[in-house]
């Protein structure tokens, strides 16, 4: 008996399935719509934004510029007036309001270059970084301290005091050499040049020590 009833009900199985499909599709139309926003989740964005991983130091950038590292792409997010006054060598100018233009997208949404944002300090550059991080762009960094820190550390480095550790002097030597590369002239270097003209100027080869990083992993 049960079997016969089952068969009777199953005679309408295709109709039932068809109705089911239409109901499901109709449900999609009736569902309350909420506007979707692009980007990684806010929790992820926050944890990315809190971490200082995005910062690159001025020394790092100077080293890369001096060695003409082809993989970095410096982006000045200040307005074009300030950009024309002074900017890092080979920097591109994408003023912050134009960050989301299609033209800028080609530079941000790619994986060939390490993009470095900078502004006078890192306030505006951080804004640009957060927006691009939400959109999920990879390889984007911020110059720590911006151009102000660039001036303080690279263009006009302060001489370390006598009692400072040796690597402070080493760093100072590198910074001084870098500042000369960027056009700063020191009185003592001029004298040296005029007296020891014959001498081949010593090449400053700065070998960046790799930071030791403990291997991560585990199972």
């Amino acid at each position: 008996m049960i079997n016969r009833n089952l068969v009777k009900a199953l005679r309408y199985r295709y109709v039932l399935l068809a109705v089911g499909l239409i109901l499901l599709a109709g449900g999609l139309v009736l569902l309350p719509k909420q506007e979707k926003h692009k980007g990684i989740t806010s929790a992820e964005l926050l944890s990315n934004a809190i971490s200082p991983e995005r910062y690159m130091s001025t020394d790092e950038i100077a080293h890369k510029i001096v060695n003409q590292d082809p993989s970095i792409l410096l982006i000045d997010v200040r307005d074009s007036l300030n950009y024309q006054k002074y900017s890092l060598p080979n920097a591109l100018n994408i003023p912050l309001p134009k960050l989301l233009d299609d033209n800028s997208m080609t530079f941000l949404n790619q994986d060939q270059y390490e993009v470095v944002f900078f502004s006078n300090d890192n306030f505006d550059a951080d804004k640009a970084w957060i927006i691009s991080n939400r959109l999920g762009f990879k390889n984007i960094h911020v110059l720590k301290g911006g151009l102000n820190s660039w001036f303080k550390t690279i263009i006009n480095p302060t001489m370390p005091e006598e009692n400072m550790p040796a690597n402070a002097f080493e760093q100072y030597r590198f910074r001084k050499a870098a500042s000369m590369y960027f056009g700063v002239v020191y009185p003592e270097s001029v004298i040296q040049q005029s007296t020891e003209q014959k001498k081949v100027p010593k090449k400053v080869i700065t070998v960046k020590k790799k930071k030791k990083s403990t291997p991560e992993g585990g199972c």
């Binding site: 200040r78 300030n82 502004s119 006078n120 006009n156």
Partner: peptide, 17 residues
Amino acid sequence: DLEKSIIDIPKFIKGSA
């Protein structure tokens, strides 16, 4: 102050020369 340039860098470079 935020985003205030502390010094005119090209001027400084010229001045150093």
